[in-house]
Structure formats: structure tokens, C-alpha cells
Design a binder for these strands. Structure first.
Lengths: 380, 380
DNA sequence: AGGGCTTTCTTTCAGTCTGAAATAATCCTT
DNA sequence: AAGGATTATTTCAGACTGAAAGAAAGCCCT
């Protein structure tokens, strides 16, 4: 029901009933409960049909509840406050003072408290979504391994729950971003999805039946060392031709430096040069796009999702290569895929990090998995 | 509930309640309904605890219902009758007289009717599972493409339902086999699974949350053209190093002929020679095992299933190479996988084809997806 | 202004499913 | 034959559902 409200903005009860297949009676009962709990509110009625009892549009109550989120990145923490619809009310970025878990957590907690106090307007917080890179076990809320921060087995959830007194949802950043895409991005109407992130690291998240598939080790989505045939670049794992070695920003930038196209290894500089007309720079970026397409073909062949969403600086910084990616994926794939429709760039803008941490909370909320928030129908 | 009965054989109601988490009251109600409908029966009581009211073991009623199945292969049709537990009551193989859909279907229907009449003992048939190679759309029951039989867009289900008057479930053979593994094989206790078949063709099936994931084109599990780096064998698709080109029986047999190891391209002959001590023959098989392991590493990294099940003549005919497959997969995989536990050979014997067609019916039955069979609790 | 008309929303009612707890059943032990 | 132990059944109340009847709230028309 909440999904119908999310998807269709302010919406009258009778439409909800039609969309969800529930009876009007059930919708009324549920909405009264949700109105009482402060999750929904009556929206100002817009001009509607000129006959019959007027529609009463229902919408999320953006005043009484908020979701909080934080993304713990290599160099900075992004914190966010958002309403139930996922609209960001405020975000902030904090440069790390130190990378020790204790210091990062302390800083994030302090500033998140402050941000919430200032922008939540007295609303209650549903919970806190924590998006963090590397290998994460969401069930226990533990960061198993994060090279960027140098963390190993950090019990993030228990620490944060203790100091914030709110439900905390820890998840890998790639999976969090996939959820954001699923709720607020281009994948809202899709059942299965593979989200592919290509930036300084590469990773994927698999969604089947609108549920993230994590696997027993919470490690599903590992595409870094998928072997591609198109090159023999050496990967940090010691092997040759890994997807990671061919597609990360860093790899490309280093190649460009080797070839004297740019002075410092920076992907932005390389894109700049390519846009300036440099043939070899463009060739490098084209080659990466083909590698990405090649990898996608493998993923699409194996998983055949409704949709593939591409994200990360490796894709968004130079969208002009999307066509190459699509063409390569299509030609490598035995399936007759419609690449224009099934391979899409991320629908989230610059606020991906903030949105993705928020998506963790709202996903749990919509699924009724949040510990203290359960909705049952009222009977009088 | 039925799953508990399937897993734990004859089992008293109170145990079912404990296993399923239902209350004893609900279990009683459901069992009485299922007993009345002839799905369950009271089993002969075995000697049990020597105090208290004796347990009444409940088991499937193997007399009043059966499942029927057929596998349409390249050269022959396998037909089967089985009880609700999946135990085969009778199977038969029919060589095709012709490969036209009409001829194959007519023959299969005739003989399946006869087999059922003879071995079902008056039991009703739940439905007919049809396992067929190639690209199949199970929703519409259409065989989109099957090269072995030369079929294109054959509306198999509608034809069979008309002539048999029973619910018909059409599914690709690989997915049917994965279901059989899920219900009767080594994957009964597992939530997610990738089933990898390697024989004259290669293919996979993906199970997440004990449900087959098919994807929008019903094409999930395509691993044939996944690129491996270990060789440059040319695939029928025109590319180099495809998984298919490196691992099918036919490919291996042809290689062996090229190298003069055997006279006729036959995988069995090659295995024979290798077992006889031929170094180059063994090297060929070892190389295939490593290729398979390499492919598995990609699959495991991406999907991270609870379990990988290997099947098909490419694996079962020469089980001595399983260790190589596992070792290669483990070494190629960045995850710390326990290959001995998570990569297993199929748990089904020679009756795979029959069992897999039966699994289609029982899977639908257990999920209550069979059109005329729905169970609701009784109230008096 | 007030009675129809139309549509939305609410309430009533009956039905289904559930589990807790009381009750019945059935065996073994003494 | 009574007592004990345990399983199976029934009774009961609670939760949820949809169908249908009823109330509400606007417009239209005279």
C-alpha cells in the first residue's frame, strides 16, 4: 500500500484499492491506522471530477517521521535526513579526522544528531541507514573488510545503536545504491535488477523479486575478478584480464599517464583530454566501455534481469560512452536484448550516497522489518 | 507443511507443528483436510516413546495421487509416473519415430496414458511435468527454440492439455533438473542454488529463495558463451574461449580425435583411454575440469549461492575430476569458499530425466500453484 | 433552497485463518 | 483399575479480509 502511495504521489483511497487489489474496506482501515500513527496525512485536495463525493488524496506525512542515513566513504562521511518519500531534507559531508572506527563513528553521530535536530522539525526518526564500502554482513551489522578505511570486523551496528538509540541498518554501499534505485530511481517498476557500479572499485548488487540477494557470505555481486578476454592487463589479484583491472577509473588513468596523455593519474583529466579531441584518449575510454559491455553480457546471460543499472563515476562522468557499452553488450549477448531499455544509467543524481543510505531505512520500513514500527489494522 | 512431511518421512503431527512453527491446532486442521483429499495418509505406527499417547505418523498417501512427467530429448522421450514423494513408480523410454512436434506429442501421450493406467493403480494424476531442452517459456508453455528437435515456437502446453485433460507444466530441462535437486536431491535444505549442467550442451539454473529465477525472457542461466581465458577454442558462435566451447562432451571428444587419442568422437571412449593411463587424455579432461572450475568461480562470485550443484555427463561420467574442478574454483574465487561443501555433484542417479519432469509437478503442487488443487483448512 | 445524482468513504457483517488453552484420547506404569 | 504422560482435537477469542449496505459530500437542476 505504501508503495502505491510512493509511486503515485497524493492518491485517494479508492485508487489505492484499485492499485493494490485490496478492498476499499481494508484500505480505509489501514489508512486510518497509518494516519493515526503519523505515517500518512491528508493532502490538500486538488480539483477533481465534478461529480460524486470528492476524492480525499492521501500522502506521506512528511512532518512526523524522518529517515536518517550516513555513508562512510574513504575520505568523508555523508550524512542525510529525509522524509518518508525519500526526499532529502538536508545532507552534509564531513571530512574524516581519523579513520579509526571509533573516531569516524563519534564524528558521524555528533553531526547526524545535530543535522536531525535542525532539519527534522521535531519529527521522530524511523532509523538510521548506514552505507559503507567493502564487505559487509548486514544481518549482524558488521563491517567484515573495508580496505578504503582499513577496517576489519567492526561491529558497526551495535556501536551505533548504543549511541543513537535508534534501529541501525548496515549495508554495503553497492547494495544500498541498488535499493535506492529500486525505490527512487529508474527501477521502481522492475522485479529483478542487477546494479553495476564502476568507479574506483567495481561491484554489483543482485535484486530478485524486489529483494536484495546477498548469499550466505553476503558476498553476491562480486564481479571484480570476472575474466574478460579483451586485454591482458594485470590485476591486483595477480591474474590477467580481470573486469576490475580493465574498468576502474584508476586503471584507466594510469594507462593514460603511461601513454603520456595526461600528467597526473586522474580520470577527469583523461575525459577532458578525450573531449578535447585526443584520439588515443578516446580510444582508451572506448576500450573501457567495450570491456564494461563485455562484462554486462556475461551478467545478463547468467542472471537475465529485467533491468541493468549502471552507476559510478566510470559511467556517469562520461555518459557519451553509454552507446558503446550497450552496443558491445548487445553484440556479445546471445539473447535478443533491447539494450536501450534494459541497460540504463543510474536515475539518481549527485545525491546517490545520501539517498542510498536513506533507502536502507525506507526499504526496511516498507517491508515492515523495522523493529518498533509495525502497522496493524484498527477495529473499533 | 508438505515440505516437512517430504523431508522427514512419516512424521507425527506434533513434530510437524514444531518444524513448521505452526500451532498444533492448525496442523490438525490442515492434516484432516489433506487426509480427506487423499494427499496424506496415516502411516503404520512404529515403536516410539514408551510413555504418553502414542504418535500417529502421517505420510504422503501414495495410493490416491500420482504425478506424471515426460522429458523430450533429442533421440527419445522419457516418461514417468511417480508418487507424491517423487518416488518413481514406473518409467519408460520411447525412441522418436519422427521429430515433428505432432508426432512426438502423440507418441508421448499414448504411452504415458498406458504407463499411468498400468502403474498408477487408479490414482488420480495431479498433472504432467514436461521437461524439454532449449529455450522454453514456462508461463505460456511454449518451446521457443530447441535445436536438438528442430522445434520453434511450439505451443506445447495447450496441445498437451487438450489431449490429456490435465494441468501441464512445461519447463526447460535444466531448470526442471534444478527443481528435482531442490526437492529430491542434494539441495533440499538450501535457500539459493546454482545448478550447472555440462554435457553435450551447457546451461545453468538459478534458484533464489527456493524459487527458480527465470528472468523476463525466461533465459536466466545462460553460461554457454561466458568467456574464459584459459584457451582459444573457437565456439559455434564465432567467438573464442566460450565456456561452451571448452567444456562440452563433443568439444572434448573432437579434440581427442584430433590428437589421435581415440578414433571416433566419443566422450566415453576418451574417459576410458584416460583411465587406461593415457597422459594426454587425462590432460584433456583435467583441462576441462579447470575450465569448469574457472566458470564456477565467476558464477559463485556473482551469485554467491548457498550451493552449486554440478550435473550432466561432463561431470558425472568422470567424477575423478571433481577435485580439480573444486580446486580451480576455490583458487580463482576471491571468496573463502568451502568447495567440498558448496560444490556438489548431483544427488540424483540415472533417473534424472524422469525425476526432473516429476519435480515440475510436485513443485507446483507444494506451492499450491496447481489449478484445481488448493487446500484450505476445514472447520466443523 | 432543496431534492436528486453520483461517487467516495465508512461501517456492518459474515467468513477464513490463526494460536492459546481446555479437553479428549491413548498408551504405559504401578 | 487408577495415575501419569504425552499427543491429538476441540473450543474459544482475536486478527484480518471482502461484500454489501449505509453515510457523506460534492454537483446539477428546478
Amino acid at each position: 500500500m505504501l508503495r502505491a502511495v510512493l509511486a503515485h504521489g497524493p492518491i485517494p483511497r479508492s485508487h489505492i484499492a484499485r492499485l493494490t487489489g485490496l478492498s476499499q474496506a481494508s484500505v480505509t482501515r489501514l489508512t486510518t491506522e497509518l494516519l493515526a500513527r503519523g505515517f500518512l496525512a491528508v493532502a490538500p485536495s486538488t480539483a477533481t471530477a465534478d461529480v460524486g463525493r470528492p476524492l480525499v488524496p492521501i500522502d506521506f506525512d512528511v512532518r512526523s517521521w524522518v529517515a536518517l542515513g550516513m555513508h562512510l566513504g574513504r575520505d568523508r562521511t555523508t550524512i542525510a535526513v529525509a522524509d518518508l518519500r525519500g526526499t532529502l531534507l538536508a545532507t552534509d559531508e564531513l571530512g574524516h579526522e581519523a579513520r579509526e572506527p571509533a573516531a569516524v563513528v563519534r564524528q558521524a553521530v555528533t553531526w547526524l544528531r545535530r543535522l536531525a535536530a535542525r532539519h527534522a522539525g521535531g519529527a521522530q526518526a524511523l532509523g538510521v541507514g548506514v552505507s559503507v564500502g567493502g564487505w559487509v554482513d548486514p544481518d549482524d551489522g558488521i563491517v567484515i573488510e573495508n580496505d578504503a578505511l582499513g577496517w576489519r570486523n567492526v561491529p558497526l551496528r551495535s556501536r551505533l545503536e548504543r549511541s543513537l538509540g535508534l534501529p541501525v541498518l548496515v549495508e554495503s554501499n553497492v547494495r544500498a545504491m541498488a535499493l535506492a534505485e529500486l525505490w527512487f530511481g529508474v527501477a521502481t517498476k522492475v522485479r529483478s535488477l542487477v546494479y553495476v557500479f564502476i568507479g574506483n572499485v567495481v561491484g554489483a548488487a543482485i535484486v530478485v523479486g524486489r529483494t536484495i540477494h546477498r548469499g550466505p557470505l553476503a558476498a553476491a555481486g562480486g564481479i571484480a575478478h570476472m575474466r574478460l578476454a579483451s586485454s591482458n592487463a594485470r590485476c591486483s589479484c595477480g591474474r590477467i584480464g580481470c573486469f576490475q583491472a580493465l574498468t576502474t577509473d584508476m586503471h584507466l588513468a594510469e594507462r593514460a599517464v603511461e601513454r603520456g596523455l595526461i600528467a597526473q593519474p586522474s580520470i577527469d583529466a583523461l575525459i577532458e583530454v578525450a573531449r578535447g579531441g585526443s584520439r588515443p584518449a578516446r580510444a582508451l575510454l572506448e576500450a573501457r566501455a567495450r570491456s564494461i559491455g563485455e562484462g554486462l553480457a556475461v551478467i545478463i546471460g547468467l542472471v537475465n534481469p529485467d533491468l541493468v543499472v549502471l552507476a559510478g563515476s566510470g559511467v556517469t562522468a562520461a555518459p557519451e560512452y553509454l552507446a558503446t557499452i550497450r552496443a558491445e553488450a548487445r553484440s556479445r549477448c546471445v539473447l535478443p536484448i533491447d539494450a536501450e531499455r534494459t541497460i540504463l544509467p543510474s536515475g539518481l543524481g549527485a545525491d546517490v550516497l545520501a539517498s542510498s543510505s536513506i533507502a536502507l531505512v525506507l526499504d526496511a520500513f516498507y517491508r515492515q522489518e523495522l523493529p518498533d514500527v509495525t502497522v496493524r489494522s484498527t477495529r473499533r
